[in-house]
Amino acid sequence: MNGAELSLAGVCKSFGGLTVIDHLGFTVKRGSRTALIGPNGAGKTTVFNLVSGVYPIDDGTISLDGEDISIVSPAGRIGHGISRSFQNIRLMPHLSTIENVMLGEHWRRPAFSLARGRRAVESVKAALADAGLQTYPGQVVANLPYGIQKRIEVVRALLAEPKILMLDEPAAGLNNAESDDLRALLERVSARGITLLVVEHDMHFVRRLCDHVVVLNFGRLIFEGTPEEVHRDPAVLEAYLGTDARAVQSDNTAKAR
């Protein structure tokens, strides 16, 4: 499995006259572990929605390994190697864990093959076990705890065998142990060469997982660099002041210790 390089150039998007993404351009390098951060309303989730095809872009290009994918249909993008999770859990509430996860590999299976074939079930179970979810295969997801559902979303996205895995706040709502498990899983994913793009508010998580940080504010790029540099950048500090300034500062003190 190989990662891919995602690049955005001059991307614009507005909703009813409100510009949400404004001439945005940045590159997520092949095999990198990139974090996309910014204050609330900066347009992070919109970037995910534009890349995965939920909305069409108004202007600019989104390309994967140099190929323009902004013209590919939403259902076709997963075939180009893009898969994602969602900020608010978007699992299929009436399907079991295993069925939800199988949706991830749906695009690469023939329509009339049995979903419950032995080989298919075994490979899915292995993926679940790798994420520590082996105990819940047959259960309806709506009744499972939040942290478990959050991880099922990651496994579903992974089973699509993506070249770039986009996770929208994967650590939100997880306790420390769960968050560490998730990070370990993502490190294993990254070791397989898959490019990671993560939207995350938890800077502690970002600093330990990611090697590159992209900061947005009002739909524009305001900073790009390493997790260490991001705290010293005046533009970033200003963007966060009054919103998440305390989070950044406390994170700085944590690092100083």
Binding site: I78, M92, H94, H106, F112
Partner: peptide
């Protein structure tokens, strides 16, 4: 019990997410 059936039930629950996972809605 086929993949098609799984896609049907996924579409029942959430059309938009099904589409993003390559389901030909």
């Amino acid at each position: 019990s086929t993949r098609l059936g799984l896609a049907m039930r996924a579409a029942h629950d959430d059309e938009n997410v099904s589409l993003l996972f390559g389901v030909n809605l």
